[in-house]
Amino acid sequence: MKKAPIQFWDYRWKLVSLVILIFAIAYTGKPAAMISGLAFSLLLTFFTGTNPGEAVKNLKTPLYLLLFMSPFIILTPGRELLWQLPVVKIYRESLDLLFTILLKSTSIILIFNALLYKADLTRLMQAMKTVGIPGKLISILISTYRYIFLYRKDLVKLSIAAKLRAHSKRRGFSHLLTSADIMLTLLVRSYEQSERVQAAMVMRGYRGEFYFAEKFKSKFSDKIISLVVLMAATGIILMENLC
């Protein structure tokens, strides 16, 4: 399968520059800076070959949440009254807030999508280690990643077993009790497994830190792409302060 351009970008450079860009966008509050942030994240999505479908999929959940929250945001009282309808009043501040959340969250999700698009999470964590994240934390992240999937599988099995015995027909407290039992089973199993996993790791010489076999090699193009992203981040911050 053909690799997207983003997959050739060195993980360390990608991580540092995109995280800086995310913070730059999170810092903005003025329309010009926010729109520029969104425009740049769209360009990034396009040029890095990130699948737009996946980006839209990732945007769906936060946008639904925003849609759910929008009536509450719109009805928040402010100082400058825009429209007075029979029952409700719409203020400029509430519309500004809705616009801000929409622009900033869309931009950040698009960048986040570029950061993670077809990324090897172990390599990403290795990059995190090389940029100074403590080894203990990286070890926890790596192991958590592995076992989240295992327990999700377990959870699906337990839920199917419960559903086959009409669990879904129960409501209220009895539903809570059954769900508590599923949770309990998952936790006790995991506790016992955690002891075995720990033993298995110590038996293979583990002393609290993960080592990686691969070395990072950055190319000239990695530095150029990162420079472009960092320039964009600087531009957005300047726009916020000067406009």
């Binding site: 172990t122 790596i142 192991s143 497994q193």
Partner: peptide
């Protein structure tokens, strides 16, 4: 599953 914990 007690022994294999890495991503590959």
């Amino acid at each position: 599953d007690d022994q294999l914990f890495s991503s590959t």
